[in-house]
Structures are given as C-alpha cells and as structure tokens.
C-alpha cells in the first residue's frame, strides 16, 4: 500500500450531529488524504452513516467544521457539495427502481473535472461488465450485488475526486464483496480518495490504508489499518459483536 501524503482532501473537526434531541455524533474529527482509502469502522448504530450523511449535507451538523479541498462545506446543500467533486454512495443503495441502468447513470452525470478521472458509460461498463449487458434493465429488477455496482457507477458518473462509500458490503454475498474490494482498489489506483464506512473487517483490511473506529458517536481509535489488524484488543473492544 502506498503511503498517502499532503494536506487532507476531506477533514472533519469536532462535528456534533443531532436527530431531534438525540445526539448521534460527538466531536467527530477525521481526515482523508489524497488517493487514500480510509475505513470508518463501528458497530450498527455507532454513527457511521450519520458521519457520512453529515459530510454530504443530508443531515445538518449542529457544531464543528467540515472542509473539502480546503473549503468549508458544512451548511451547503447536498447538490452543492456533490458538485465540488464529492461523490456519495448511500448505504441502502437507493437505485432509482423505475429507471433503466443507463438512465440511473444519466442522473449521476456531471461535467468533467480537471483533477479527477473522467467516466463515460463505456469506461464504466468496462469496470462493471455485468452492467453493460443490462443497460436497458430497470433498476428495480436487479439483484442486490448488481444494484451495488450500479450505485457506485452512478456516483462515478459525477466524475468525483473523493467518494463516500457507505457500507457497500451490506447484504452482499462474499464473492460480490471481493468484487467490491477490487473496484475500490481500482478507483484508488486512478487517484480517487475514499472514505469507506464498514462493519466488514475483512473488506476494510483488504483495501484501507488507515482506519478510524467510531462508537456511540465518538471516534475511539485512529491508526493504520495494518496496526488495527494486529491489535486484537481494540478489535474485541469496539468491533466484535
């Protein structure tokens, strides 16, 4: 694994997020550097998805700062954040079921960006050969694995420089998880930065450079993925079910 360097592309500092009166995130700080895959690990309900949603603007943090490529983005609307080159792959996939594969991709399309690889239908179909064969199929008629590939492809159509991947392995067969891992490494090789929220330690170990562990809305551990893989004690404390 290459060691990423330079200033962080995505940085959270002291983020608090509430749902109504319930505090979900407390002083969450983390950073993702260029071409780095960072895992955000934690059990169900620990605050992984809320962290991701706070970044992309689907929920509003009450406190703290979020910056992307040096610019503050907290308080911006989702579409504005997305247009800065921050792609979001939601946890429950949220494929447009009444649209075809090609149309799903079209919804994600954005103008090309200078500092990001440019994606076309053909390039995406090369990355996800399954999708090429079914470009006229309705999103609602695809299997879970195919939908997961489609969601990633849809986000790539926005030519992002950084991707937020929310639990991509959820509900997928192990062989498909391997495919997701391969895709993540492919994207990293193309220079994309990725924040990966996961419960699946196996997938995270395969692809991540660094890892954070979140529990009850607080970051409890920060370190390289290799260290975490060695550290039985931490894993038992925060990740074992």
């Amino acid at each position: 694994m290459t060691e990423a360097t330079g200033a962080p592309v995505l940085e959270l500092t002291g983020v608090d997020t509430f749902y109504g009166r319930a505090q979900i995130l407390s002083e969450v700080s983390l950073e993702v550097r260029r071409s780095e895959v960072v895992a955000l690990l934690g059990r169900n309900g620990a605050g992984k998805s809320t962290t991701i949603k706070s970044i992309i603007g689907l929920v509003r943090p009450a406190k703290g700062e979020i910056s992307f490529e040096g610019k503050p983005i907290q308080g911006l609307e989702s579409f504005q954040i997305s247009r800065l080159g921050l792609g979001y792959v939601p946890e429950d996939r949220r494929v447009f079921t009444s649209l075809t594969v090609a149309e799903n991709l079209e919804v994600g399309r954005q103008p090309r960006r200078e500092n990001a690889p440019e994606w076309t239908h053909d390039k995406l179909f090369a990355l996800f050969p399954n999708l090429a064969a079914m470009s006229d199929r309705l999103g609602g008629l695809m299997s879970g694995g195919e939908q997961q590939m489609l969601t990633i492809a849809r986000t790539l159509m926005g030519n992002p420089t950084t991707i937020l991947l929310d639990e991509p392995s959820e509900g997928l067969a192990p062989v498909i998880v391997e495919q997701v891992a391969k895709t993540i490494l492919d994207l990293k090789a193309q220079g994309l930065s990725i924040l990966l929220s996961e419960q699946n330690l196996h997938l995270s170990t395969l692809v991540s450079d660094r890892a954070y562990i979140i529990e009850k809305g607080r970051i409890r551990y920060e370190g390289s993925m290799a260290e975490l893989a060695e550290n039985e004690e931490i894993r038992a404390a925060y990740l074992m079910v």
Binding site: G57, S78, F79, S82, P90, S98, T155
Partner: peptide
Amino acid sequence: AATQDRQMVAALG
C-alpha cells in the same frame, strides 16, 4: 428520478 427519491437526486449534484 426525483419522483422516486428527491434526496438521492440532490446528493448526486
């Protein structure tokens, strides 16, 4: 797409 999921459409820019 927005008829089905407005939030997701916004999150796609």
